[in-house]
């Protein structure tokens, strides 16, 4: 009887449909389990461990060298919460990400609106013009800003000339928080324009006509009709800008000053500078938690929005 069942199970496993299912979904699942899930879990484990004698991590399996602690510890987390410095860097990163996202929104919205309201035959070209700079490597775009914001350029002279009129000492545009935010906006702007445009393009123009007939002026039509309808586009665009900005280390590295350290720089330094991998893993876990929290929050906002629509 038992034999019967097992051979039945075997037959089912060898059934063409089941076999196809395994053949198609098996290899990618195995690859991602090995190279995405396993490393992520090991990073979680690493955040509860001690650094190795020569930097990095104490060996995971077997006993370490003499004097190496191979147990588990909460020390990394305690250290994070015991020093205000780290929380401050997290808060600063969130502020930079927020300011960059809002700046992107303010710049992208009029552009997306204009594209959506242009004649159909022009729209593809206008969208392409937004994506085109985005096709060049982001380091090149950052480098372009380094030149433009540099102290010998016309922009710096103009700003400092203006400041001199008010008796303010000249400032350095490059290597400042200002430059970091300009860089973040410059690199991520298309991520905001595209979802906004996709949303705005679908709006029914007759809604605006109806509002006009009912006596709404231009601003009222925008704030009471267009803007509320575009909220899903705003949310997805904001998520696409906010999350990558939060983890970015190259832009603060190249455009920021010594005090413009963000989460990404802190993590990078733990892995390649001071080589305290457990602490770096802990910081990465904290960043993951922040991102997951934000994603959950955005998903809830989006859902509420959709419920209101129906």
């Amino acid at each position: 009887m038992r034999d019967f069942q097992t051979s039945g199970g075997l037959l089912r496993a060898l059934h063409p449909a089941t076999l196809t299912r395994w053949l198609v979904s098996g290899p990618p699942t195995a690859f991602m389990l090995l190279f995405f899930l396993a490393p992520s879990l090991i990073m979680v484990l690493a955040s509860f461990r001690f650094p190795g004698a020569f930097g990095g991590l104490a060996p995971l399996i077997g006993a370490g060298r003499a004097g190496e602690d191979t147990g588990l510890t909460l020390e990394n987390y305690q250290f994070f919460f015991s020093d205000w410095l780290y929380a401050e860097i997290f808060v600063k990163s969130l502020v930079v990400a927020l300011v960059s996202t809002l700046t992107c929104l303010v710049m992208a919205y009029p552009l997306a609106l204009l594209i959506a309201r242009s004649p159909k035959r022009h729209r593809d070209l206008m969208v392409l013009l937004v994506i085109l700079p985005f096709a060049s490597n982001f380091l090149i775009r950052v480098y372009a800003l380094m030149i433009l914001l540099g102290p010998q350029q016309a922009l710096a002279s103009a700003v400092n000339g203006l400041l001199a009129l008010f008796g303010v000492a000249p400032v350095n545009l490059l290597f400042s928080t200002f430059a970091v935010i300009v860089g973040m906006v410059y690199v991520h702007l298309p991520f905001m324009v595209l979802p906004l445009y996709t949303n705005l393009e679908k709006h029914d123009p007759s809604l605006l006509d109806a509002a006009q007939d009912l006596g709404a002026n231009g601003w009222q039509r925008f704030w009471r009709v267009t803007f509320p309808l575009s909220l899903p586009g705003i949310f997805s665009g904001s998520a696409l800008v906010f999350i990558p900005v939060l983890g970015m280390f190259a832009i603060p590295d190249l455009l920021g000053g010594t005090r413009d350290i963000l989460i990404g720089n802190l993590i990078k330094d733990q892995f390649l500078g001071t080589r305290d991998w457990p602490f770096g893993s802990m910081l990465s876990i904290m960043l993951t938690l922040v991102v997951l929290g934000l994603a959950g929050f955005a998903a809830r906002l989006g859902r509420r929005d959709r419920n209101e629509e129906t």
Partner: peptide, 25 residues
């Protein structure tokens, strides 16, 4: 979940977790 999550996470997280995985494991 396995395939799409890496797309949505900050790149640095995949970078450092693979670094640990390759070197340590």
């Amino acid at each position: 979940l396995l395939v799409i999550t890496p797309v949505a996470m900050p790149e640095i997280l995949l970078g450092v977790s693979l670094l640990i995985f390759f070197v340590q494991v």
